[in-house]
């Protein structure tokens, strides 16, 4: 067991940040474990949802932001639906994932391909306005180092006329570009603060 690093100087900083950003009363969690019991992906998690809820209160920032769980969460929201304290646990997980990205905490293990896929997905939207499935999949394979991953699936889709070789570009892609650009500005300002 690794040594846990408690934030002695600002023990409540992480808790306050998460509560503010997610709008969720993390402090009300009484550790019943229903979120973990119902979680779709718990079997593949390194930290369970109820553990994360408690670790936020302990201020274990580094341990949480390093966790693969916050990236593997499918945001299916079962945890939220079953929480007896009405805490939106899924929103808390999402807040943590966004925090990890903005703090440039490098995702490891199973979290890495998740972050890569999300980035390529959004790049595709930014460029084309809609998802260009084929290019996104090819890029993902190239960058994740598994060139022929899902090749059979691709072949099946091709035969069934389910694969487009060119992107469908709606008019107004400059509007989409503007959304992404403005967002970078806004978040850049917030991060500098």
């Amino acid at each position: 067991m690794a040594t846990l690093k408690l934030d002695v100087e600002n023990p409540r900083e992480l808790l306050e940040y998460v509560q503010r950003e997610s709008g969720q009363p993390v402090e009300k969690c009484y550790q019943c474990g229903k979120c973990t019991a119902g979680c779709t992906v718990a079997f593949a998690f390194d930290l369970m949802p109820h553990q994360i809820m408690h670790m936020i209160r302990l201020g274990l920032r580094e341990e949480i932001l390093r966790a693969q769980s916050i990236w593997l969460c499918t945001t299916c929201v079962i945890c939220t639906a079953r929480c007896p304290q009405n805490i939106d646990v899924a929103a808390v997980m999402e807040t943590l994932r966004i925090l990890a990205r903005r703090q440039k905490a490098l995702p490891t293990g199973k979290a890495r391909p998740v972050a890569l896929f999300n980035r390529l997905f959004l790049d595709s939207i930014r460029k084309h306005g809609r998802l260009f499935e084929l290019a996104t999949m090819v890029l993902f394979n190239l960058k994740s180092g598994h060139l022929f991953r899902e090749a059979e699936t691709g072949w099946f889709m091709w035969r069934k006329g389910k694969l487009k070789l060119t992107p469908t570009r709606p008019r107004g892609t400059e509007e989409i570009e503007r959304i992404f650009a403005r967002l970078q500005e806004v978040e850049g300002e917030e991060d500098r603060r």
């Binding site: 945001t75 999402e94 966004i98 959004l122 939207i125 998802l131 008019r171 509007e175 992404f180 967002l183």
Partner: peptide, 26 residues
């Protein structure tokens, strides 16, 4: 809807709340 764009899907809302809202709101 003429010229609809992607809703952002899970890649959007797990990256940024504002981005997810903006992509849907358009």
């Amino acid at each position: 809807i003429p010229d609809w764009s992607c809703c952002g899907a899970s890649a959007g809302h797990t990256t940024s709340r504002l981005l997810a809202l903006a992509l849907a709101a358009r």
